[in-house]
């Protein structure tokens, strides 16, 4: 098929010209991931801007009718979630150290652990939503506070889902033995992404649950 030969030609040609691989520096896929994360930062920046705008302009915040979601009240969900995500960042870092040493089994274990922690976070995330919706009658339409709360945590949760899917992919590839000490770009990409999701959560935790 033409497509294949074209691709092959291109590859051979690139080898000749010394593109990509031989240029040194960051791998293109990783650079792409960094740029994507940069754009994600702007996305969350806009959401945070909305939050701080409301906080700065309203006489009382949260406005009357909505109660501040306190992290220090039973069942301490936000705090548990924070601990879980921070731990998952550590396990992800562990995975990186393992593969950089060429320890594939260690990589797979650490990734699996991260994946489980990610799933646990998602469960708690859903649980918190259920609690708020049913027991506190606090929904996305409960004024600006509800809208901000659900949009910010919702988009963060969606990103965790994305990260968990990414973890699943690299776990299966890791189990298939596709990563080596030298070649594990896909893993590195997910690794960056997971840390990013984590950092966003820490900021969320600080602004939404702590800063009154």
């Amino acid at each position: 098929m033409t497509v294949n030969t074209e691709a092959l030609d291109r590859q051979v040609h690139e080898e000749e010209l010394g593109h990509d691989a031989r240029r040194g520096g960051m791998d293109p896929a990783l650079l792409g991931m960094m740029l994507f994360i940069a754009s994600e930062v702007m996305f969350f920046a806009a959401l945070f801007a909305a939050y701080f705008n409301a906080k700065a302009t309203l006489p009382v915040f949260p406005p009357e009718g909505a109660e501040f979601i306190d992290a220090f009240k039973f069942p301490f969900l936000p705090i548990i979630m924070t601990v879980i995500l921070l731990t998952s960042s550590l396990t992800m870092q562990l995975a990186t150290m393992r593969i950089r040493r060429g320890d594939r089994t260690g990589l797979n274990r650490a990734v699996a652990l991260t994946l489980i922690l990610g799933l646990a976070f998602l469960v708690l995330w859903a649980w918190e939503y259920v609690l708020l919706l049913t027991e506190h009658d606090f929904g996305i339409d409960s004024g600006i506070y509800g809208t901000l709360f659900y949009t910010l945590t919702g988009f963060h949760g969606a990103h965790v889902i994305g990260g968990v899917i990414g973890l699943g992919v690299i776990l299966s590839r890791g189990l298939a033995g596709q990563f080596t000490k030298r070649h594990h770009v896909a893993f590195e990409a997910v690794h960056y992404y997971w840390h990013f999701v984590d950092v966003v959560w820490v900021l969320l935790f600080l602004t939404i649950y702590l800063l009154k």
Partner: peptide, 17 residues
């Protein structure tokens, strides 16, 4: 979200701007 889920981002009555 404001249009479809009753959000209040831009609704001054709900505290939005």
């Amino acid at each position: 979200i404001d249009r479809n889920y009753g959000g209040g981002f831009f609704d001054p009555a709900a505290g939005g701007s």
